[in-house]
Design a protein around this nucleic acid. Structure first.
Length: 1119
RNA sequence: GGGCUUAUAGCUCAGACGGUUAGAGCGCGCGCCUGAUAAGCGCGAGGUCUCUGGUUCGACUCCAGAUAAGCCCA
């Protein structure tokens, strides 16, 4: 006996049972053992930030990762199964700051850097534990750490990081301090997920930076960049995440810059950032725009003609016009010339009009206030034009010395006072509220300002003014940019394919990579600056550091390479020998993630091992953002290290939204937490939603969608399984132990042969789709197959299972359905690992003691070519099409399916197809409830025709003349054409004076209309049913109706399906005639053993209409 | 301003290689089935396949341009 399978199932509860089964049976480790000598398939996981619980959007990506890994495992490959956690950087810091209630960097310093860094590590461990548990819940098979161990480490880190602890690793016990154990997580001796805060990850980045340094690609640059004054750090181009802008309203100001040599005249200037006016050095105009001098009261302004309407309020008079070019060099009084910073820099003295092509007049005044210390474009301009640079802001957005009353003030607090100051100076024209998209800090939402800073960069190579194809080898040799493009073009494939174009676009245009950040928790950049000789040196390894160290080594030793411990070490400057300190900056976190194709695969310690796994066969992440983030950093670092691409295939996918089409947002009430989704929908359902989604399109995720998937995919699948087990148990049918993997025997039954062929075709297509990274295509194919299985094979086969005698046909039905279900479970195991496991356990493991103990330890099904019968699949398709047409005809005529019909006529199909229909006639007759089928050449008996050319054949043959032929055909009576065609087998058509001979195949004959028949037709074939009902047919219809009614009454009376009954019937003579004529049939179908004249008082009685005739039916159980 | 993507039924989406009745699910209407049944099946209504040009005998499909939306960059 199989374990009973109810037709309703709690998928969620079942998933928990399966999880227990996998865990208790160590099934994942058995899989690794099973494949340990197999060929390798390399997947590199993009690290998930261990900063929050996992979201349903993460589950999308993780489902893909698991899908491909499970698929490849069943195909017989070994894998590394290493998950990754992203651990360092500002996003971790920000959350820890928030938890601790810190407002600014000085709070961190007051708290103590060592404690803060420790807290960051603990935060990572905590969330890594949670995300691990959630991933396991999803069914994501990876070499996971024990979450309890991660929590234990977190606790012990809080107690005392220097205490010693022993933990079990894959190759035995490892003893070390807690701090070092945490620093060694993910390394071979400890196993489990990799953590980007690991010592190995950090030191491998050092190796990479050293290579850059040796090539002269690392430099310290001065730049004006977006700055968050709260985080007190620059926001690099590479890390502004998707929504780094907000719609914000600021008070903008129109003000006058009085011209020094044109008394009474001013430039009218506009800005939305009044704090930058302190640092004005020039005013830019477009050389080709027209500028006007307008008079308003006693004021005279210059501004661009196109900006007049927008800028000027009230009446004015235009006095004069000049092209912008003629304004060049005009000197003016700046708004803050009294400030020491203006005086010392020479800006106050030198204010003048400059020309700039980027000036526009769509907003503002067409004259752009230029402050090179406060804006990136302005800074560029200052370099071109030799303008002084005034940098007003220091750390935390505080005005520096030289700004008088502003010095010491915070930039976000000064706007009103600046307006007041300018009003007193009498140069304000007007203020205006202005709404625009303004950059904000992607972590804390603080409005960004632009600040002149020193940061460290990796040079990405000059952008050459020519297409990639024309870049020479010699140029490439020196240029990381083109080396990256080269490896990407030559060695990688992208899914969806447009990913390649997007990555190349980024590579072509990317700026140098800013790798420094003035923060605390992250990679310690191994850059040592000598204050004696200004030389800087990059240290490439721990060993080199030790060798060069001149002080502080004792304070660092035993710690992970993080601040503050690493900062204690000073080295001897390789140039002058003086003691040099590490720059205090930490690294950009994409360095951490980008190095993992080296750091996690023992690049530094076991180059052979690394070579076996590099490059990855696959990486997979969500594409928004990653083209310039992880994909980019991975490629950049791999190119620096080896000038090779880090992966062969990149499968990426879009963004997950809520069902309302908007981003999920807690405050909008449309967010769904992973845990809730998993326990409500079940993860198999979620996984199917993810797999079936088109990866290049955004996925709308929600409960409505999940209900649909459950109803349309999982429940039908489960119901077929439930049906099989239920009847197998009733019949005592048992498969032989090896039946699940035996080649199916040839069944005499066409349905069996058909479904087995369909199964093979499905196996073939699904495998192809998975091999080409098209899971959505695979899902569509599977859904089609499940529909075939459930709504055709099983529906048509039901009676084969019910019949009481155990004949060969019944055995064939059981064997077939059994083998189909087992193979389908294996086929779907990578997609929906839980339900398929449940089915496999019951159908296979309970029978065959030698079977793999899990479906996931079995092999992926291979196509059994011998079972493929494409012509049978075509024939069945034809039969189903005809049945569809027949049903449509019934619908049209209003004759329900229970009413038998004498004959249907079928036409428009070839003789071969007729033979096929004859072969499947029993099916067609039964489905349509008709007595016989007749075939017809033409439809004239049932309807009229339309005749059209077969465009597909005639188009290539006659070209444009096809249209003329079509016209000529439609002008002729279709019946005449049909007769001619039937007579001679061909058709002669005169069109535009030319005569064409068309044979049968070149003509489409289509039907329409009806006359006493109900006819339905598609492009070439038709089904006509005779609507005439003989007395015999009517009686038979009544009989079937009676069976139906009696069955319903049985159900209303709450009888069991196997209860025998006595029956009474009181009705019209016609109904009694029908009953007598079909008595055997009716009593057999309804399990009636006694027919009584009048019912006993205990009988269940019901009066109703039966096909319009009054009838009272009584039923009673017979004991 | 540049790169990439998307535009098909009320909604969510399918529609290699261009072929003349453009499909599914949901929703809606009608019907069927009832030994998978708090399911299932069928039929129907509903679409100028965003617009404009072009290529072609023929364009939802290919090309160009426009419009709108999204992502990225400037």
């Amino acid at each position: 006996m199989f374990k009973d399978v109810p037709n309703t199932v709690d998928f969620v509860a079942q998933e928990h049972q399966i999880l227990d089964f996998w865990r208790d049976g160590n099934v994942f480790h058995k899989l690794k053992t099973l494949r340990q000598a197999a060929p390798r398939w390399s997947f590199i996981d993009g690290p998930i930030t261990a900063n929050n619980p996992m979201g349903v959007h993460h589950a999308w990506g993780r489902t893909y990762k698991d899908l491909f890994q499970r698929f490849k495992a069943m195909q017989g490959y070994q894998m590394r199964y290493q998950n990754g956690f992203d651990c360092q950087g500002l996003w971790i810091e920000v959350n820890v700051e928030r938890d601790m209630g810190f407002k600014a960097k000085k709070d961190i310093e007051a708290y103590g850097l060592d404690e803060f860094v420790n807290a960051c590590k603990r935060q990572v461990l905590r969330h890594a534990a949670t995300q691990t548990e959630q991933s396991v819940r999803l069914g994501y098979w990876m070499d996971w750490n024990d979450p309890d161990l991660l929590r234990e480490l977190e606790t012990k880190m809080a107690q005392d990081p220097s205490q010693t602890l022993t933990v079990e690793g894959p190759n035995g016990a490892v003893t070390d301090t807690v701090e070092q154990l945490v620093g060694r997580l993910g390394l071979p001796e400890l196993g489990g997920s990799y953590f980007t805060f690991s010592n190995e990850n950090n030191y491998t980045i050092w190796t990479m930076l050293k290579k850059c340094f040796d090539r002269g690609w690392i430099y310290k640059g001065t730049d004006v960049m977006p700055w968050c004054s709260r985080c007190d750090t620059g926001i690099s181009q590479h890390e502004i995440v998707t929504d780094g802008y907000r719609e914000l309203t600021h008070t903008s100001i129109f003000l006058r810059f009085p011209l020094r040599n044109r008394p009474g005249e001013s430039l009218l200037v506009w800005t939305t950032t009044p704090w930058t006016l302190t640092s004005n050095v020039a005013a830019a105009v477009h050389p080709d725009l027209t500028y006007a001098l307008v008079e308003q009261g006693t004021d005279r302004f210059w501004l661009s003609k196109g900006a007049l309407e927008n800028a000027i309020r009230g009446d004015y008079r235009t006095l004069e016009e000049k092209p912008g070019g003629e304004l060049e060099g005009w000197a003016y009084d700046g708004p803050f010339d009294e400030l020491p910073a203006q005086q010392i820099s020479g800006a106050a003295e030198g204010h003048r009009v400059i020309l700039w092509d980027e000036v526009g007049e769509a907003e503002g005044t067409g004259i752009v206030h230029t402050a090179p210390g406060c804006g990136a474009e302005d800074f560029e301009l200052s370099k071109e034009q030799g303008l002084p640079v005034i940098a007003p802001l220091g750390a935390e957005g505080i005005y520096l010395d030289g700004f008088d009353w502003l010095t010491g003030r915070q930039v976000h607090t000064v706007a009103d006072d600046i307006f007041e100051n300018l009003k007193q100076k009498g140069i304000v024209y007007r203020l205006e509220e202005y709404t625009h998209r303004y950059p904000v800090c992607w972590r804390c939402e603080e409005e960004l300002v632009f600040r002149l800073v020193d940061e460290w960069f990796i040079s990405m190579g000059e952008q050459l003014d020519k297409p990639y194809e024309q870049v020479t080898e010699a140029e490439k040799e020196q240029n990381l940019r083109y080396q990256m493009m080269e490896v990407v073009l030559n060695e990688t494939k992208w899914y969806p394919s447009f990913g390649l174009a997007r990555e190349l676009d980024w590579l072509r245009n990317m700026h140098d990579w800013m790798i420094s950040k003035k923060r605390y928790w992250g990679l310690a950049l191994p850059i040592y600056e000598c204050h004696e000789c200004a030389h800087f040196h990059v240290v490439g390894s721990l060993e080199e550091l030790k060798e060069l160290a001149v002080e502080g080594w004792d304070k660092f030793e035993g710690h992970t390479p993080h601040r503050p411990w690493i900062d204690a070490v000073k080295i001897a400057c390789p140039s002058c020998g003086a003691a040099a300190s590490r720059i205090p900056d930490v690294g950009n976190p994409w360095l951490d993630a980008g190095i993992v194709s080296f750091s996690t695969m023992q690049y530094r310690t076991d180059r052979d091992y690394w070579g076996q796994w590099f490059p990855a066969d696959l990486i997979s992440e969500s594409f928004p953002g990653q083209f310039r983030n992880w994909f980019y950093s991975l490629i950049a670092m791999s190119t620096v290290m080896e000038r090779r691409a880090p992966f062969k295939h990149n499968f990426s996918y879009a963004t997950l939204f809520a069902e309302d089409g908007r981003a999920m947002h807690k405050s909008w009430g449309n967010a769904i937490w992973f845990d809730d989704a998993a326990e409500t929908m079940g993860v198999d359902v979620m996984r199917w939603m993810y797999c079936a989604a088109k990866p290049e399109q955004n996925l709308l995720f929600g409960y409505k969608h999940s209900d649909e998937v459950r109803r349309q995919v999982l429940i039908p699948f489960w119901n077929v399984y439930s049906f099989l087990v239920t009847y197998a148990n009733i019949d005592g049918w048992r498969p032989t132990a090896t039946l699940w993997k035996d080649t199916p025997q040839r069944s005499e039954n066409l349905l069996d042969r058909w479904i087995l062929s369909r199964l093979q075709s499905t196996v073939r297509s699904v495998t192809e789709r998975l091999e080409t990274f098209s899971p959505d295509g695979a899902c569509r194919i599977v859904e089609d197959f499940l529909d075939n299985l459930s709504n055709w094979y099983l529906r048509r086969s039901r009676r084969r299972f019910w019949k009481s005698e155990a004949d060969t046909d019944k055995a064939a039905a059981y064997q077939t359905l059994y083998q189909v279900m087992v193979t389908t479970s294996r086929l779907l195991a990578p997609f929906v690992p839980f339900v398929t496991e449940s089915i496999f356990q019951n159908l296979v493991c309970s029978v065959d003691p030698d079977a793999p103990e899990s479906v996931h330890l079995s092999d992926y099904p291979a196509v059994e070519e011998g079972l493929v019968d494409l012509s049978l699949e075509d024939d069945m398709k034809l039969a189903r099409d005809l049945i569809g047409l027949g049903r449509a005809a019934r619908n049209q005529s209003g004759i329900k399916t229970r009413q038998p019909i004498g004959r249907i006529g079928i036409g428009g199909i070839s003789e071969k197809q007729q033979a096929a229909v004859n072969g499947l006639a029993a099916l067609v007759l039964d489905e349509l409830n008709v007595k016989e089928i007749s075939f017809h050449e033409g439809i004239d008996e049932f309807a009229t025709y339309t005749i059209k050319p077969n465009f597909k054949l005639l188009g290539p043959k006659y070209g444009r003349n096809v249209q003329a032929i079509a016209k000529a055909m439609s002008a002729t009576d279709a019946l005449d054409l049909k007769r001619e065609l039937d007579g001679s087998g061909e058709l002669e058509i005169q069109a535009d004076g030319v005569s064409y001979r068309l044979d049968r195949a070149e003509i489409d004959v289509q039907s329409a209309n009806r006359e006493g028949y109900a006819v339905e037709a598609d492009a070439y074939k038709f089904v006509a049913l005779s609507t005439e009902l003989t007395h015999e047919l009517i009686l038979e219809g009544l009989a079937r109706e009676l069976v139906n009614k009696i069955q319903q009454i049985r159900k209303e009376a709450d009888f069991n399906v196997s209860d025998r009954i006595s029956l009474s019937l009181e009705s019209t003579p016609t109904v009694h005639e029908a009953f007598e004529r079909h008595r055997a049939y009716i009593t057999h179908e309804t399990l009636t053993t006694i027919v009584v004249e009048s019912s006993s008082p205990n009988a269940f009685l019901k009066s109703q209409k039966v096909n319009g005739e009054d009838a009272t039916i009584g039923v009673e159980q017979v004991t």
